[in-house]
Nucleic acid binder design. Sequence first.
DNA 1: ATGAAAGCGCTAACAG
DNA 2: CTGTTAGCGCTTTCAT
Lengths: 332, 332
Amino acid sequence: MKPNIQHVAEKAQVSKATVSRVLNNNPQVKGEIRERVLRAIEELGYRPSVIARNLATNRTNNIGLILPDITNPYFPVLARGVEDAARRLGYTLYISNTDNDPSIEQEIIYKMAEQQVGGILLISSALDEQTVNELTSLRTPIVLCDRLIANKPFDAVLIDDYKAAAEAVGYLIGLGHKRIAHLAGPRNIQSAESRRAGYLDTMHAAQLDPFISVGSFSYESGVHQMGAVIDEYGPTAIFAANDLLALGAMQEINRRGLRVPEDISVIGCDDIAYCSMSRPTLSTISIPAYQIGVTAVQLLDDQIKGVSTGSKNVILDHRLLHRESCSGVDQR
Amino acid sequence: MKPNIQHVAEKAQVSKATVSRVLNNNPQVKGEIRERVLRAIEELGYRPSVIARNLATNRTNNIGLILPDITNPYFPVLARGVEDAARRLGYTLYISNTDNDPSIEQEIIYKMAEQQVGGILLISSALDEQTVNELTSLRTPIVLCDRLIANKPFDAVLIDDYKAAAEAVGYLIGLGHKRIAHLAGPRNIQSAESRRAGYLDTMHAAQLDPFISVGSFSYESGVHQMGAVIDEYGPTAIFAANDLLALGAMQEINRRGLRVPEDISVIGCDDIAYCSMSRPTLSTISIPAYQIGVTAVQLLDDQIKGVSTGSKNVILDHRLLHRESCSGVDQR
DNA sequence: ATGAAAGCGCTAACAG
DNA sequence: CTGTTAGCGCTTTCAT
């Protein structure tokens, strides 16, 4: 039979309360007694019941990570950051996928709240006020990663997507490109929208004619969109909203007998591992995914422990990575 | 204040027990009363406390997935299979990384057992009897994925690694290759050992001189090992224990001015998404990772529900995928 | 510094 | 079919 706190108490000839105190490192237990309890615990092989503790304290040491799709190579890196940081702080981690579907997202949020998670890390696919209201009514600590929601005051860790996109497009323009198309992500994703805006504004500022193709952040979508972009626009350069799209685009460009970067330059966003394995290697905006995960957990921990000083957005630095997939337009 | 079961009972003018019954879909509650309770629940916005239920029943609806590294593109696919199946069955999913370190693995197993998970899905890096003993002493349902432990009778879902390796090497031999090197995985990983054995036996059976380089299942390791293999062995073909190694090998082959497959053929194992994006595309052994995840959850669910009929190993089919990275040796 | 006792919110016999 | 009554194993006042 599995021993409980009562058994330990009897064996050590103390009360349950005292056992509980040494379990929780309460300093006001005298050395000798503490020793006795510890020995009893040892001899019985006693392990406190997390479940019972949860009920008594009405909280858990679990946190949840809700993300679009762990199968997209960007997210595992972020998830590793989260897991490593969470484990260091003694949290156990739930992970769930939404497939960028706001209704699934909501369902999962409720499920996690129901599990009494201490807090939630959310990479959201929802932009609307309603989601915000439901989220706040949960009264569960929340930290947003990568994507804001309706500019509402949740803690968040992200990069400056607008600026990143502007830099990427500016880089292409600096290379002499004039026909630069954008492979955009889904319209319900905030970071995708910011990148899109950064693209558009930069194109307009340079008096260039923009062209946007909307897709779904996947490799297949990149392949498919790229075909249409070539047919309808005839670009010399592509700014893709993420690397998977960029990789798909490169694939289609090659399939048509065109070359990267000689015929069409391509730049992506995220800096997933494949970027440096592909041929040519893919220039991109590097996002510190691991660090985002780590930072988000810290913010969440602050909220949970109640040391949080008002909501804050942490903007981490991105970096434009020059690899082989972009070249000057006059090299053609 | 958050309503509890007592509040609902009062509002509906019934006992807590009755409320509990409708909560658990106990059919023996009369229609009219059930309606009343449901209405009360609705009006109060009552949500049962999972924590309290866990304590009362002494079990949770959580299961844990313990894997080497979610950052290796093979595992997210398996994890998606697990998550989708788990969600369908009403389980919430913990995920944790071991980095193939047996001591971390053990620590995580204990942590999860402590969380009173209903069961554990384990991709283990441990081969020894001791691990087995500790695992069985936990009395927590366990299903192994991909990798067995000391051939002990745990439920497991995997492929026939030995046979897969033999097929891959046989394929290379059929292409006319004689100098076929193997980039092997860590020695503490059962699947890696089986693949290694499959390679060795097939080489010996064909009277060929084998060459093995041991690494760590990573792209960087592939790059590094490949250099040594070229210098020390001079292969015309490579069988890598996983795709990341194969991709790294291709990278190094190219860096040295050699070509795949003209100078050296390469075949991997796993069939991660990137295999069909690379240039040349990578021939490999396809492993049904998603299906492994789904199947493993089903077995675990059976164990948890107690309908399990003795321990069983489910062997799923692999498939040799012919892509561009292998060619006949006489084409050189 | 330690103990006694009252819960935390739910489930599960057992009665009726 | 519904209610009564004990717990589940721990934490946490409140005394001592």
